[in-house]
């Protein structure tokens, strides 16, 4: 029984497990994702990716295949249709096949794992999605990451960190990654793999080799726990949000990798001071926070930046609107402050 209903009000993250899982599986190079269910489930998701990926400069459309269940398959069971679909996909040049199940397949009780467990010429990985029965969009993301992680093997640790669970459907995914890389570079740490963004199956051995995993946000903690259990890799639960959180992030990563953070902190603190000085012109004003997001991390980061610039935050609707966006690192705060400047000087 689904005991994890979608959060309300409806948000992008409250969507179907299928979309969440596909946001992961479609980032594996050469992989095909089979949606085991009626055609519509594949169609809606394909449409979403078709509309979203160009915003992230991705022109290659994902390799989605539907097992195209009809009424007869529902009545008599859909395992034969899934077998035919996997066979057809395996006859193409694919590196990996992911199989995602839909609500109706979970309802009629198809044994998807058993079908995937047969002797196929390429890895066929079942992702426990089960449509709405499986939970929310985020559960789909987590389950896909965990399913893929189980295909990796433990490896000797080397000095690098892995980035876990980037939000492939968010607009600033690469900017946020770049910011985290910048912070890691201050500590002299390279990135092992982006799990999962533009991932080549050949890179999978690096999954178990990192000194630490950095999760995109705390909703990925179940994935972090799984990686720690499977590979012994500790994790940082989130990308940094805001100025002080960025400094705390540097300290946490340094501690996990047994690195002295002093020099990195000095550089970052200097950068933050420089940015605040650059935006002194919007200080000593009155502003009111507005969307598009008001989650705890973003709100905290916005409040901290406002305080640093002596902006008085009120609920006065006549005050300058201060848009709150999801921010990652110091650069994220700088982007937000640019938006505030435009709003204040508009």
């Amino acid at each position: 029984m689904n005991l994890r209903p979608s959060p309300t009000p409806i948000s992008r993250s409250g969507g179907c497990t299928l979309t969440g899982a596909l946001s992961v599986t479609t980032q594996v190079r050469g992989a095909a994702s089979i949606i085991h269910g009626p055609k519509g489930c594949a169609h809606h998701n394909f449409s979403l990716f078709h509309a979203t990926l160009p915003d992230n400069d991705q022109a290659v459309l994902p390799d989605l295949v539907s097992s195209a269940l009809g009424e007869c398959d529902i009545i008599f069971g859909g395992e034969d249709a899934l077998t035919r679909t996997i066979r057809s996909v395996c006859s193409r040049d694919v590196s990996t096949v992911f199989v995602l199940s839909t609500c109706i397949v979970a309802t009629i009780g198809d044994d998807v794992e058993a079908v995937c467990g047969r002797d196929w010429p390429v890895p066929v990985i079942p992702v426990p999605t089960a449509g709405f029965f499986g939970g929310t969009f985020q559960d789909g993301v987590n389950n896909a990451l965990i399913a893929l992680a189980d295909a990796g093997a433990p490896a000797p640790t080397r000095p690098c960190v892995n980035i876990i669970g980037e939000k492939n459907l968010e607009y600033e995914v690469d900017e946020n990654y770049t910011e985290v890389v910048r912070l890691l570079t201050l500590l002299g740490l390279p990135v092992g793999i982006r799990f999962v963004r533009h991932l080549s199956p050949d890179d999978m051995p690096a999954l178990g080799a990192a000194q630490v995993s950095i999760l995109r946000d705390p909703s990925l903690v179940p994935v972090g726990d799984h990686l720690r259990e499977r590979f012994g890799t500790p994790y940082i639960p989130s990308f940094p949000t805001g100025l002080s959180d960025t400094l705390a992030f540097i300290r946490s990563v340094a501690a996990a990798c047994r690195i002295d953070p002093k020099r990195a902190l000095e550089i970052e603190q200097a950068l933050q001071a420089e940015i605040l000085a650059d935006f002194a012109d919007i200080g000593d004003t009155e502003g009111v926070f507005c969307g598009p997001v008001m989650d705890t991390g973003s709100s905290r980061a916005a409040r901290e930046a406002a305080d640093a610039l002596h902006i008085r935050v009120s609920s006065n609707r006549e005050a300058h609107p201060l848009p709150v966006h999801p921010v990652v690192g110091t650069s994220g705060v700088r982007r937000m402050l640019h938006r505030w400047r435009r709003a204040i000087h508009a």
Partner: peptide, 16 residues
């Protein structure tokens, strides 16, 4: 009629 025991959905078979 309906599906083999253990697979599919016999109830939907009745509706069909």
């Amino acid at each position: 009629g309906g599906p083999e025991p253990g697979v599919g959905c016999a109830g939907r078979g009745i509706i069909a």
